[in-house]
Design a protein around this nucleic acid. Structure first.
Length: 430
RNA sequence: UCCUCAGUAGCUCAAUGGUAGAGCAUUCGGCUGUUAACCGAAGGGUUGUAGGUUCGAGUCCUACCUGAGGAGCCA
């Protein structure tokens, strides 16, 4: 018999179907057995009555353990007592494997143990909810840009040089050369933006920083739009629209998952355009008033970001940081040369920076000067300088960290649950 | 890289310097409606590693290993 997914079982009420999956949990009471079967789309309780089976068959069912793989055939029955609304009255089954000593039990476990068993932890309903929301976030991002006429042009993962120079890169062999794993698609995005007008890339990003916090991964996913002729205000509008679109979409389609995670929906539902836009100057002032030690000219610490974002219900956009604390390619503010035309978006509830971007330098000579100021070799950047020689235009873009957004939307206490297999400072297994 | 804390049964945790314990998981038995089912029984240990103090160390001291939390940097 063809298999039916648990999420579709309701459509077959009264008829016999086969569901295929893994035993989530089991309870028995002498002549009755309750098998919770999980198939990835949902969980359904399968009820087996002793009188309907031979003693050998019933005993075989009784021997099923947690995460045993099995196909169960039964009649679909609506039942108000059941979690998903339906139960299966078991008429037959085919045991594929009886699992022995499954390490993750229904009781509590520590993080270290669960991370060691991440490949199995993914089967739990909590991880299931998070990764389904991640999927929705990614799809919402793609749809948002696609609907605005953006072209997806993915950028390389192997790169010959540093994109930003400041952060550490993972180095690898590339036959006879040295290559680095990308830490941003932005530079290549600038080339494709000059080809297609408005583009985005969506891929993994690698940072070899020895960061050990709840906000960092060594490998994470980033969506980066880049738009020719765009100004700082344009991309702030774009970023605001993206976040609203993502939040709206998750609230509409993944409410059940948010409830599984016991996420308080009010802060998400309260997010509305326009997001507050605060200059770096104002932000520093507000932080100092709220008790921060920050001085003008410095970058914000995690605590500073929280102090500022706590003053708003929507994400806040901080623009025009001092150029000195930002990357070499940032366009200076024509009004105040010491400032960069850049923006960081800080998520509410203490989740910190989720977006960073700005206008890029489009003047050839200024860019060349900045490369030299940052002690970067100009040779690997020839192609990048070319973009300023052949029809240069003002342009801007930003990057959004997927795991940080997922983490915020799900209300997670650590980024590691927002990706299936997190790469962290001291953990690369499994 | 720096600071703090923690390593005891497969897992989560107890145990004043004085006989190594419980719940879950596993195995066996009981129960026709269980929802982390419940009830009864059993097996399961070089207390992270190496030294040291002591009549006696899971407990105190030193070093190392592993993990967790935080800082800096960033998305």
């Amino acid at each position: 018999m063809k298999g039916v997914y648990v999420e579709d079982v309701g459509a077959h009420e009264g008829s016999e179907v086969t569901v295929r999956g893994w035993v989530y949990n089991k309870r028995s009471s002498g002549k009755l057995q309750f098998i919770l079967l999980r198939d990835g789309t949902g969980i359904i309780q399968c009820v087996a009555f002793k009188g309907n089976f031979s003693p050998e068959q019933f005993e075989a069912l009784d021997r099923l353990t947690q995460e045993s793989s099995v196909e169960i055939t039964g009649k679909v029955r609506k039942d108000s007592r059941a979690r998903g609304g339906y139960e299966l009255d078991v008429t037959g089954f085919n045991i594929i494997q009886v699992t022995e000593n499954y390490p993750i039990t229904p009781k509590e476990h520590g993080t270290a143990f669960l991370m060691e068993n991440r490949h199995l932890w993914l089967r739990s309903s909590r991880q299931h909810a998070i990764l389904r929301i991640r999927h929705e976030v990614i799809k919402a991002c793609r749809d948002y840009f696609d609907d605005l006429g953006f072209i997806l042009v993915d950028t390389p993962i192997f790169t010959p040089n540093a994109c930003e120079g400041t952060t550490t890169l993972f180095q690898t062999e590339y036959f006879d050369q040295t290559a680095y794993l990308t830490q941003s698609g932005q530079l290549y995005n600038e080339a494709t933006a000059a080809a297609f007008g408005k583009v985005y890339c969506f891929g993994p990003t690698f940072r070899a920083e020895r960061s050990k916090t709840r906000r960092h991964l060594m490998e994470f996913w980033m969506v980066e739009p880049e738009v020719a002729f765009a100004t700082l205000d344009d991309i702030m509008d774009l970023a605001e629209g993206l976040i609203c679109s993502v939040i709206e979409r998750v609230l509409m389609r993944r409410k059940a998952e948010l409830e599984t995670l016991e996420r308080n929906l009010a802060p998400l539902e309260g997010i509305a355009r326009p997001f507050p836009r605060v200059s770096y100057d104002e932000a520093v002032e507000k932080m100092q008033k709220a008790g921060s030690e920050i001085q003008w000219g410095g970058d914000f610490g995690g605590g500073d970001e929280t102090i500022l974002s706590e003053q708003y219900t929507s994400p806040v956009m901080v623009h025009r940081y001092p150029a000195a604390v930002k990357a070499f390619y940032m366009q200076p503010d024509p009004v105040r040369q010491e400032l960069a035309l850049c923006v960081d978006m800080l998520a509410p509830e203490g989740y910190g920076e989720i977006i960073g971007g700005g206008e890029r330098i489009h003047d050839h000579d200024l860019l060349l000067k900045r490369l030299k100021d940052h002690n970067l070799s100009t040779e690997p950047f020839q192609w990048y300088l070319d973009l300023r020689k052949y029809g240069t235009v003002p342009h801007a873009g930003f990057g959004m960290g997927i795991e940080r957004v997922v983490s915020w939307i799900c209300g997670l206490s650590h980024l590691r649950e927002a990706i299936a297999f997190p790469r962290m400072l001291y953990r690369i297994y499994p």
